[in-house]
């Protein structure tokens, strides 16, 4: 078996070793429901689709994904098991990949557990199930992006709380980077390419189309390369900062 698979299995079952998994799943489901039915006006919209559900995901994930990723490395640093892990003849990229995938799969599980919503809209109307599937896949990609950035932050510190707050801050930057407020701050003095780059990094903008069920290869590539970049950064950080 490949080392990343072994790490993945350990981390994934690790979520269930504590109440964390169940608390997380419950929180996720309750908040999804709340956002969708109350804030999203699911019934009022009188449209049979899941757009109200997906629209809130960038905000929901902003808090939930850092919580899922914060322990990945901080815990290892705090308990000293990082010394064990790092001396077991495992390549760092396999450790990083295994841990990330464990968190991503767990997020996928949480997302998958919202399937009653799909039945509900199918019961209420005649939705475009292709668009719904696209929305789910896009949302999972979005979760991966948050998790990759958050696991990077987790690799920096042995303090789990700090890892959570740091990850939240980092992710927040990418959520709002397309927002007019942020762009306005640069408009008068920054060059155009910088403005373009900042707005192109925006999770909100990228996710908007996906949540409507429209999938653009460029958006998919953006999220995938975003994930890859943070995983590579994590490998580098672990290489440089091993103790503590």
């Amino acid at each position: 078996m490949k080392h990343w698979r072994i790490i993945l299995e350990r981390e994934f079952s690790g979520y269930f070793a504590t109440p964390l998994a169940y608390v997380f799943l419950l929180t996720f489901l309750v908040l999804s429901g709340l956002f969708t039915f109350y804030l999203g006006g699911f019934y009022e919209s009188e449209q049979a689709n899941l757009q109200p559900f997906f629209t809130f995901h960038p905000w929901l994930y902003l808090f939930l994904m850092p919580a899922l990723a914060m322990r990945l490395w901080s815990e290892e640093r705090k308990s000293g098991t990082i010394e064990l892990l790092m001396t077991l003849a495992i390549r760092r990229r396999e450790m990083v990949l295994g841990k990330f995938l464990a968190a991503w799969l767990f997020a996928g599980l949480a997302l998958g557990l919202t399937f009653p919503l799909v039945f509900t809209v199918n019961f209420l109307g005649d939705p475009d199930n292709g668009a719904i599937l696209t929305g789910y896949l896009g949302s999972w990609l979005l979760a991966g992006a948050y998790l990759a950035a958050s696991s990077f932050v987790s690799a920096l510190s042995k303090n789990t709380v700090l890892a959570f707050i740091g990850a939240l801050g980092l992710c927040f930057i990418f959520v709002v980077s397309g927002h007019a407020l942020v762009l306005d701050a640069f408009t008068n003095w920054a060059p155009q390419w910088w403005l373009d780059m900042v707005s192109s990094m925006s999770f909100l903008t990228r996710f908007q189309a996906i949540s409507r069920g429209v999938i653009d290869v460029r958006d998919v590539l953006f999220f995938l390369s975003f994930i890859l970049a943070w995983l590579v950064a994590s490998v580098i950080v672990l290489e440089l900062k091993k103790a503590d």
């Binding site: 350990r10 690790g14 070793a17 000293g80 098991t81 010394e83 064990l84 001396t87 003849a89």
Partner: peptide
């Protein structure tokens, strides 16, 4: 990696994954 394959190591304080 090759060096670590021939190594067995007990770190100070014997850290192990506590929840397992």
């Amino acid at each position: 990696i090759r060096a670590q394959r021939v190594l067995g190591y007990l770190p100070e304080g014997a850290p192990c994954y506590g929840e397992m």
